[in-house]
Amino acid sequence: MSTRPTNLQRLDSVGERRCPGIVYLVGAGPGDPELLTLRAARLLTQADTVVYDHLVGDGILGLIRKEADLIYVGKEKSCHTLPQGEINALIVRLARQGKQVVRLKGGDPFIFGRGGEEAEVLADEDIPFEIVPGVTAASGVSSYAGIPLTHRDYAQSCVFATGHLKDDSLDLDWVNLAHPRQTVVIYMGLGALPEICRQLMAHGRAANIPAAVVEQGTTDKQRVVTGTLTTLPQLVAERKMKSPCLIIIGEVVALQEKLQWFHPDATASLGHAAIA
């Protein structure tokens, strides 16, 4: 039977703490607290310090033990409470103080969550760390919107991309993103939606391909707007949709009306997010 490495058992062995501490890079999922992994939920009840991002909801923060220190580091578009370099330095400093740190991120740490960058710094500084995967927005939000990412009749592949690159450019691999019979999921792309649709059409994607934007997916504020590459930007503008949003492009979006199952108002009244 497999066991965790000794340096990852520190949070489980109460009273046997040694310096340095340890950092857990934890995925909080797309919003609904019930989508947390058991590992993530347990770590939140045991951490000394939780360093968390903008996309982590109140329902998840409510699971953190009262004695823990909470440090908000923002990470909204063009509005970062702390630059990434300072966040890296912060979690290293806390671990060297002997603390057991949960670095809590929306979605999954290794899917557009900068978890790879932070893990590199921890490794370079010889700080013990563990990665705790989370439900990424692509799978969680699409499921709650009633949009399957793959389907034998519509899409045999799925591609994840970000609409917000490190240098604020939008220099994506449009040729590959425009391939037929695939689903494209774009994170952090709401502000660039008109350009994204224009580029995909310019590189061969049909103008009438179904596309959707999902706002605050998996939460009681979820909104879904569907259209085509031609119509979607105007529909989103008319409804004044705001981040966080996920863009889904491909034939599978045509199934949304048929497969939608999550109705935020009705579900909330039944206590869907009662874990919070």
Rank of each mutant, 00 (worst) to 15 (best):
G146K: 10
G189Q: 06
Y144Q: 10
Y144P: 08
D265S: 12
R18K: 14
H272K: 10
D69V: 12
L259E: 10
T81A: 15
G29A: 11
A206C: 09
S139Y: 08
S78W: 05
E130G: 12
L44Y: 08
M1R: 13
A47Q: 06
R114W: 05
F110D: 00
D12R: 11
R17S: 11
R114S: 03
V56K: 03
I71C: 02
D53A: 04
L61S: 13
I196M: 02
P233W: 12
L44C: 05
L177C: 07
P264T: 09
L43R: 08
I131F: 04
D265N: 12
P233L: 10
N88F: 03
L193G: 02
T150H: 01
T37H: 08
P33D: 08
A68V: 12
V132N: 05
L246H: 01
F112L: 10
A211C: 13
I249C: 01
L172P: 04
S157N: 12
T162Y: 01
T37V: 09
S139F: 13
F160Q: 08
D265W: 00
M241P: 02
P264N: 12
H164N: 13
D32N: 15
Q100K: 02
T228L: 09
I147G: 07
H263M: 14
K77Q: 14
T6M: 05
A211P: 02
A212T: 06
E125G: 02
R198G: 00
S143R: 03
H263C: 12
T162A: 02
